[in-house]
């Protein structure tokens, strides 16, 4: 059973790789203003909603890809070595920008959500 699940995962991940390559090629070919991955998400979501693709067929592969997603970003993150002087000279400013902006985002979305919740509650008898 375990071997079977492993095998299924590998096949399904291969499916996602093919889909990703295909979506990239099509986005480039049609000169779409969106990245290929977004096109891929939309197409796969539509196929799932329309029941052309069953969740069972791709669930294991998607689970593995999502669970290990962090690993795939590591090389890009390590690429920060190419920007040493930027980090040294502007790192603090960048950190402050991220901190303040993230706080602003939390307030905007959180308070907005809170307002909607209050409204929903008062509308319900």
């Amino acid at each position: 059973m375990k071997v079977k699940a492993l095998f299924a995962t590998v096949i399904q991940v291969a499916f996602f790789i093919l889909l990703s390559k295909g979506a990239d090629a099509i986005a480039k070919w049609l000169n779409l203003p969106i990245p290929g991955t977004i096109l891929g998400i939309l197409v796969l979501f539509a196929l799932l909603e329309l029941k052309v693709i069953k969740l069972d067929w791709i669930e294991l592969g998607s689970k593995w890809l999502l669970a290990e997603m962090l690993l795939f970003f590591i090389p890009a993150t390590v690429g920060i070595v190419n920007y040493k002087s930027l980090v040294v000279h502007q790192g603090v400013a960048i950190a402050i920008v991220i901190l303040c902006s993230t706080f602003a985002v939390m307030l905007c979305s959180g308070l907005m959500g809170q307002w909607f919740s209050a409204k929903q509650r008062s509308e319900r008898p």
Binding site: S20, F72, P75
Partner: peptide, 14 residues
């Protein structure tokens, strides 16, 4: 490993 970023992003459709 970076080549798997695209496929993992598409998995977000799930």
């Amino acid at each position: 490993l970076s080549d798997l970023v695209g496929p993992a992003t598409i998995a977000l459709a799930v």
